[in-house]
C-alpha cells in the first residue's frame, strides 16, 4: 500500500501543480502484477472532474475510439476505465458508487493506481471487460466530467450559468430571484426555460399563488410527483399556469414530458 501512496501522492502533487506525470516504471511494475503497461497520468485528463473549473467539456461521441479498442500505450484514466471494464457512463446496472461524479473521481484514482489490479481483480467484471474491451463510449465519461467541471453537483434541472450556453438564452426569466441554482428563493414566479424550472426551488408562505411561465418552444407540464400539488395541462410556449399552495409542506414536481426537469415549492406556514 505504501507504493500505492507514493504513486497517488506523486500524481496528486503533479496534478496540483499542473505538471504532467509519468509513473516511475519500478512503481508501476510493483503495483501492476498483471504486467500492463505503465499508466501515464496527465493532469488534464477529462475523466477527472474539477481539473479545469468552469470548463464545460462537451462529450463528443467518438465511436472510432470504440473500434480502436483500449489505448494501452497511452493510457490515462479513460483508457484505464476501459481496461477495467468500469464504464464511464455509470450505467444503471453499475455500482451506485459510479453514479456520483465525486465517487467516480475516487474510483478513477483507484483505477489509476491499480491499472493491473483492477483489471485482474474485478472478478467476473474482468471477464466482461475482456469480452468487450472496446466499449466505453467517449460520450459518457466526458459527460461525467462535464458535470463535474461545470460546478460539481449542479444538476441539469437547474439553469446554472455555464460557459458556452449564453447563446441559448431566450430572455430574462420571469422570476426575479432566479440566480442561485437549486437554492431556495423567495419568489412567486417560476420560469420554465431551457428545460429547467428557474428557480428550481422556491419558498412561499401558505396561501401564495405561484405562477409558472413556459419560455421554451417545447411543451412542458408542472405536475406534482405525488399527492396534492400542481397539475398543469400541457403548457405551450408562452403559456402560464398558476397554483395556490394552501398547506405548508414540500411540493416536489416535474415535467411529465421531460421528467428530468425537477422543481420544488417549499410552503411555510
Amino acid at each position: 500500500m505504501h507504493f500505492v501512496d507514493m504513486l497517488v501522492h506523486r500524481w496528486d502533487l503533479a496534478r496540483a501543480l499542473g505538471r504532467p506525470y509519468a509513473a516511475p516504471d519500478e512503481l508501476t511494475r510493483v503495483l501492476n502484477p498483471c504486467g500492463g503497461s505503465a499508466a501515464r497520468l496527465a493532469p488534464d485528463d477529462r475523466l477527472l472532474p474539477g481539473d479545469r473549473p468552469g470548463r464545460v467539456t462537451t462529450p463528443a461521441i467518438d465511436d472510432r475510439d470504440d473500434r480502436r479498442g483500449p489505448r494501452a500505450e497511452h493510457g490515462g484514466p479513460t483508457a484505464l476505465a476501459r481496461r477495467t471494464g468500469r464504464k464511464g457512463s455509470y450505467p444503471m446496472w453499475c455500482s451506485s458508487v459510479l453514479r456520483r461524479p465525486r465517487r467516480l473521481f475516487a474510483v478513477a484514482v483507484l483505477a489509476v493506481a491499480f491499472p493491473g489490479l483492477a483489471a485482474c481483480g474485478s472478478g467476473s467484471g474482468g471477464a466482461a471487460s475482456a469480452a468487450a474491451p472496446a466499449y466505453a463510449p467517449a460520450a459518457t465519461p466526458t459527460a461525467t466530467s462535464g458535470a463535474g467541471a461545470g460546478g460539481g453537483t449542479t444538476p441539469p434541472s437547474t439553469p446554472a450559468p455555464m460557459p458556452g450556453m449564453s447563446g441559448m438564452a431566450t430572455g430574462a426569466p420571469g422570476a426575479g430571484g432566479a440566480t442561485a441554482a437549486g437554492k431556495p428563493v423567495s419568489a412567486t414566479r417560476v420560469a420554465i426555460q431551457n428545460f429547467a424550472f428557474s428557480p428550481a426551488t422556491v419558498t412561499v408562505k401558505a396561501g401564495t399563488t405561484v405562477t409558472w411561465t413556459n419560455q421554451d418552444s417545447d411543451p412542458h407540464t408542472v405536475t406534482a410527483k405525488s399527492g396534492a400539488g400542481p397539475d398543469s395541462p400541457t403548457l405551450d410556449q408562452g403559456a402560464t399556469y398558476q397554483y395556490t399552495f394552501t398547506k405548508a409542506g414540500q411540493y416536489a414536481y416535474l415535467c411529465t414530458i421531460h421528467p428530468f426537469m425537477l422543481g420544488t415549492v417549499v410552503v411555510t406556514p
Binding site: P59, I61, D66, A134, Y135, T140, P156
Partner: peptide, 26 residues
C-alpha cells in the same frame, strides 16, 4: 454501442434533430 452479446442502436428521427448528449443546456 456493444456490450458483450448485447448491441444497442439508437435511431434517428423523422422530425427534428436534438443536440448531442450534454451539448448545450437541454
Amino acid at each position: 454501442k456493444t456490450e458483450g452479446t448485447v448491441t444497442f442502436h439508437s435511431a434517428t428521427t423523422t422530425a427534428y434533430p436534438l443536440p448531442r448528449p450534454g451539448v448545450g443546456p437541454a
